[in-house]
Design a protein around this nucleic acid. Structure first.
Length: 483
RNA sequence: GUCCCCAUCGUCUAGAGGCCUAGGACACCAGCCUUUCACGUUGGUAACACGGGUUCGAAUCCCGUUGGGGACGCCA
């Protein structure tokens, strides 16, 4: 019967450092790290930090067919980008197979497990028969138990753990609450395959135990597996960790999150111009809340986060809200950092530029970042500043360059020749010009904007004028006036 | 099919029996600001899945229904 081990309570006593919190994120390197996994990592990180504990990473690479070194690197890169790198070097599960086998044999020696000589084909047939008869398949290994090795078939055996038949298993889940299942539902699962490799359900338990994990925080999809894992803990006489099963993230339509919903890989968000702090903030708020707080930077998140605030229902990915949050973080970001990123993106988009262009982008950054939601948008909006010479004209912008507008620009160029080149001065010169000519400021600003940026949308025109510098600005105005 | 979990505006959530005429955020609509686009700001539309209990009183507790999700591998 299952009661939380007493040290769990002790661990929460202030002043008890003997059993500090240890969490782990345990992805399998069979693909890229998706957004759901990223959130699981985040919760593990936040929980450990909040309690002054340790946050670890274990790569579950026991499936040798599907695990790849590229995927491992991808996961590491993703976590690094999100600021969720582990406190210690990652543990590779495959490297611990000797230990897994050792525990399996210990279970055998204790009489808690037995050798099962079924072939995969036999099992598949049994499963099919059960399905055909519309009854749930439950493995029956009674014929192998207590078998004299001499009578064993000449088949490499797997090791199966004996499931309890009576009573029920109870898990006090930190998120889901008390969850119980009748032991009659469990069956004798394989812990060591016939080829000597461990199964996931077994390896996880051995590793979590050996790594002294105190809190297993993972996706909801592992909830029912937890009862199977309990069999190993209990049979070995190990105290179980605390479990916390967090709900999954779904796509906007409520179905399992997949590529057709948009970006799902953590690194895809980076490519699309999202900031890691915005992604983390968004992910944290998905399934967790603290009153009305929405913008919660890392430090604040660590201070606030705890598992009791995690909801039990699955939530849907809302890209619009992420986008909004990204805008918030973008506006609050350091100008030098943004400039660096934008220049890099522009370079990738095959725009060549010199230091003059780079300086202009930096000068414009405070007003540029006000009007972008992603780094990609930011880069696009900075493109006019980085190039030399007249910018390419957008269709809508070109339409604005009427003969009158061109004449106006020529006149304006003349007028600006003697202007002092400071932003505030430029603004008042433009206002004066409009007033003298009996025009609304917009009538002057729009043609000018088109000439300088090639677009009908840009930061305030005085800022653009100033950042471009007198020479470059004059070039562009004249080019537009003559073109 | 069996077992497990879940259920407040379109979405993320606040809500731990009276503070709820159900609050906030995103999105959407309208207005203001304005030099374009954003930002900002003001207001608006919009939810307790359904049915039974328990209680003086239920979004909050219990049961059922419906609807979602997950797990049932010599995958992880």
């Amino acid at each position: 019967m299952i009661h939380p081990p007493t040290w769990h309570a002790d661990a929460r006593q202030p002043g008890n450092h003997a059993m500090s919190v240890r969490t782990r994120f345990a992805p399998s390197p069979t693909g890229f790290l998706h957004i759901g996994g990223a959130r699981t990592a985040l919760f593990n990180y936040l929980f450990a930090r909040h309690h002054g504990g340790t946050y670890l990473l274990r790569i579950e690479d026991t499936d040798r067919q599907r695990s790849t070194p590229e995927a491992v690197q991808q996961i590491l890169d993703s976590l690094a980008w999100l600021g969720l790198s582990p406190d210690e070097p990652p543990v590779f599960q495959a490297s611990r197979e000797t230990r897994h086998a050792e525990v399996a044999r210990a279970l055998l020696a204790r009489g808690s497990a037995y050798l099962a000589y079924d072939t995969p084909e036999e099992l598949a047939a049994q499963r099919e028969a059960a399905e055909a008869a519309k009854r749930p398949f439950k493995y029956d290994g009674s014929r192998w138990q207590g078998l004299d090795p001499k009578d064993a078939p000449s088949v490499a055996p797997a090791i199966r753990i004996k499931a309890p038949r009576e009573g029920e298993t109870v898990v006090e889940d930190l998120v889901q609450g008390t969850v119980r299942v009748a032991n009659g539902e469990l069956d004798d699962m394989i812990i060591l395959r016939s080829d000597g490799t461990p199964t996931y359900l077994h390896a996880v338990v051995v590793d979590d135990h050996d790594m002294a994990i105190t809190h297993v925080i993972r996706g909801d999809d592992h909830l029912t597996n937890t009862f199977r894992q309990c069999m190993v803990y209990d049979a070995m006489g190990w105290s179980r960790p605390r479990f916390a099963h967090i709900p999954l993230i779904h796509g906007a339509d409520g179905a399992k999150l997949s590529k057709r919903h948009g970006a799902v890989g953590a690194l895809e968000f980076r490519e699309q111009g999202f900031l890691p702090e915005a992604v983390c903030n968004y992910l944290m708020r998905l399934g967790w809340g603290h009153g009305d707080e929405e913008v919660i930077p890392r430090e604040r998140a660590i201070a606030l986060f705890d598992l009791d605030g995690v909801g039990r229902a699955a939530s849907r990915m809302d890209y619009a809200k992420l986008l909004h949050l990204n805008g918030v973080y973008l506006r609050g970001s350091d100008d030098d950092r943004l400039t660096r990123d934008v220049l890099e993106r522009l370079g990738r988009h095959v725009v060549s530029f010199g230091t003059l262009g780079a300086d202009r982008v930096r000068a414009l950054m405070p007003v540029l970042k006000e009007r972008a939601k992603t780094l990609e948008e930011l880069a696009a909006s900075a493109a006019f500043a980085v190039i030399e010479g007249p910018p390419p004209l957008e269709a809508k912008a070109a339409a604005l360059l009427t003969p009158e507008a061109k004449a106006r620009l020529a006149d304006l160029a003349q007028f600006l020749t003697d202007a002092p080149w400071e932003r505030a001065d430029l603004e008042s010169w433009l206002r004066d010009y409009a007033e003298v000519k009996g025009l609304k400021l917009g009538q002057v600003a729009q043609p000018l904007r088109v000439a300088l940026t090639g677009s009908t949308q840009s930061p305030p025109i005085d800022a653009v004028l100033w950042a471009l510098g007198r020479t470059e600005a004059m070039d562009r105005i004249l080019a537009a006036a003559e073109g």
